[in-house]
Design a protein around this nucleic acid. Sequence first.
DNA 1: ACATTGACCTGGGAGC
DNA 2: TGCTCCCAGGTCAATG
Length: 271
Amino acid sequence: MPELPEVETTCRALKKYVIDQVIDHLIIRQHSLRWPITAGLEQKISDQKILNLSRRGKYLLFQMSHGILILHLGMSGRLNIFTKKTELKKHDHVDIYLKNGNLLRYHDPRRFGAILWTEDALEQHPLFKHLGIEPLSKSFTGAYLYTKTRARSTPIKSFLMNSKLIVGIGNIYAQEALFIARIHPQKPAKNLSQQAANDLVAAIKLVLRRALKSGGTTFRDFQNPLGTTGYFQNKLQVYGRETKPCINCNKELQLIRMNGRSTVFCARCQK
DNA sequence: ACATTGACCTGGGAGC
DNA sequence: TGCTCCCAGGTCAATG
């Protein structure tokens, strides 16, 4: 379920527990995630040191001595760090034991996540070579968005959620950003004015930073690796608020479906 | 090249 | 209680 703020929250919380630690061994109970876990991962990864942990889009990247462990949380994935023996729960698919005795445990009921190993440069990796821009990066500007949207007739919400164009924005934050920028989710991307593009980029950065500050959004079971939940769900302005009044104008918010995803917006405020 | 749809999986809630 | 249906924070592959 995680979007950029939840993945980044996970990444930040994990860093101090994993960087410079050495893998002792892996236990894989379920190989079948979105793709099968890379064959022989247990042997490949044992005794390797975790040199760094970073995020690209919604992927977590464990930079090891001789390769990179790529981990995606999918819709329902979670990574927990445990410093003492912890009871095994249903859907605890992978345990990564560190030499210091701590345990990094991957839990994912829907199994849409991924755990892959690569020894190649990420720029050439099929999952990474076509990824779009990081929305919190300096180079993501109104001018950039305006240029990129010119040839696109797709609705702006679909544009925002297309990871080949922009990474990290999913169904929650796309709706929130469009509401803040007062842009209709079905507006063709190419019809955005330069001003609207500026506003939208500002709104995206604002909502992602706010969510990050709140430790992400928790609906069912997102939690950071220490087991605490985010609280941005209390600050959502449109997501999940269909039939409730718009916080700007009081008109009832509207629910539509776009590409099979629920989309809530204010028909009066968002043009 | 771009846009849209189906598929992958489990669990929880609504409605009967 | 229990069944069925629908929905859920993602994204790749296949299809027009």
